[in-house]
């Protein structure tokens, strides 16, 4: 007698899948999605699963092809003129239908404006767990409330205030979702590019898509490249004023570095948010990171602690930043920075 497997059994026989939503803006790929492919590859390997890239847009087949350089096993391509601009309703519907049909174990999104608009909407319609702004992701067996779970996604992020790292899990739902900021994961090409296997999925526009229209879009290539800068000079709230923050610009100019700031400096209006380093900003790994007037909350450290060398300048000797720096200077920035610039110029020019 032959038993046909039931639908549920078929699903449990399927290899677990990790999906990465590949973001593109005007046909240009977002780096964060490719960083997530590199991480997704590792997560898939750790549970004997496969990695899929989900590419949505118009004339974006090239991007789908490129994902295979980063370890993708299979790509879903949804390409249609109506999908040129990102809009919540059609993009979310596409993912919702795919997720209901295929039930991946993990779906990852960049914590960009698009990712933060889309991921919660999809998590809501599929009743999935979603953790925002993760700083690390791991696969592990977990015992939760005395029940064993195999190969859960550990969603790790700094939690509210203080020096706390929380590990979030979503044990009781089929699909685990997370968003991750740009730069947190490292992007690297796979050793051997995978065989290209693209599945084109037709798109059917609906009336609901027409509720919202994008009238126009303005985007400027950002001149700020924090991720690629070998030297970063970052200022914090401790500088006290926008005027004092000019010292950061002066120092950065003198030593050929890029200017950055802590969240508090951004909130205080000292510096635009595109220059924010930290959990909710960019993660950087420069050769040298100079932190001036930054106390060193865990959310900031998450974005810079892998710098090769860290110099901390702070008037508060108790500031936690001194615990992770290589060189510490207890002093007032107004006094220390001009001395630094002068000495540097004297030695190197």
């Amino acid at each position: 007698m032959v038993f046909e497997p039931t639908a549920i059994e078929k699903k449990s026989m399927k290899k677990p899948e990790v999906w990465v939503f590949i973001e593109q803006r005007s046909g240009k790929r977002a780096d964060v999605s490719f960083e997530l492919l590199s991480k997704g590859r590792k997560l898939a390997d750790n549970m004997g699963g496969i990695l899929k890239s989900i590419v949505i847009g118009h004339n974006v087949k090239d991007i789908a092809v490129e994902t295979f350089d980063y370890g993708t096993d299979e790509s879903y391509l949804i390409d249609h003129p109506e999908l040129y601009y990102y809009r919540t309703i059609p993009y979310s519907r596409i993912l919702d239908e795919l997720i209901h049909k295929e039930v991946p174990r993990i779906v990852l999104f960049g914590a960009t404006v698009i990712g933060r608009d889309l991921a919660p909407h999809v998590a809501s319609s599929t009743k999935s767990g979603l953790t925002a702004d993760c700083t690390d992701l791991k696969i592990s067996d977990v015992t939760y409330l005395n029940k064993p779970f195999k190969d859960l996604l550990l969603q790790i992020r700094p939690a509210f205030g203080g020096n706390i790292i929380a590990t979030i899990i979503t044990p009781d739902v089929p699909v685990q979702m997370a968003t991750v900021r740009e730069g947190v994961m490292e992007m690297h090409k796979a050793d051997k590019p995978k065989e290209i296997k693209i599945k084109e999925i037709p798109f059917k526009p609906t009336d609901a898509d027409e509720l919202l229209k994008v009238i126009e879009q303005h985007r400027e290539e950002s001149k700020v490249n924090l991720k690629g800068a070998p030297i970063i000079v970052a200022g914090g709230y401790g500088l006290g004023s926008k005027e004092n923050f000019n010292l950061i610009f002066e120092l950065a100019k003198a030593i050929n570095g890029e200017v950055a700031g802590s969240r508090a400096a951004v909130d205080a209006g000292f510096i635009p948010s595109e220059r924010q380093v930290g959990q909710t900003g960019v993660t950087v790994r420069p050769k040298l990171y100079i932190a001036v007037g930054i106390s060193g909350a865990i959310q900031h450290r998450a974005g810079m602690q892998e710098a090769n060398k860290i110099i901390a300048i702070n008037s508060d000797p108790e500031a936690p930043i001194f615990d992770i720096c290589h060189y510490g200077i207890v002093g007032d920035a107004i006094d220390v920075i001009p001395k630094f610039i002068e000495t540097y110029k004297h030695k190197l020019k």
């Binding site: 590990t167 220390v336 030695k347």
Partner: peptide
């Protein structure tokens, strides 16, 4: 709520490896 807090860890800072520099010209030099 599908999301559960599995673990909360206080982060212990490594500390001890840093070199303190005097805020003087000599120190900075």
């Amino acid at each position: 709520s599908p999301t559960k807090v599995h673990k909360v860890e206080s982060v212990v800072l490594a500390g001890g490896n840093q070199e303190m520099i005097e805020p003087t010209k000599d120190g900075i030099s």
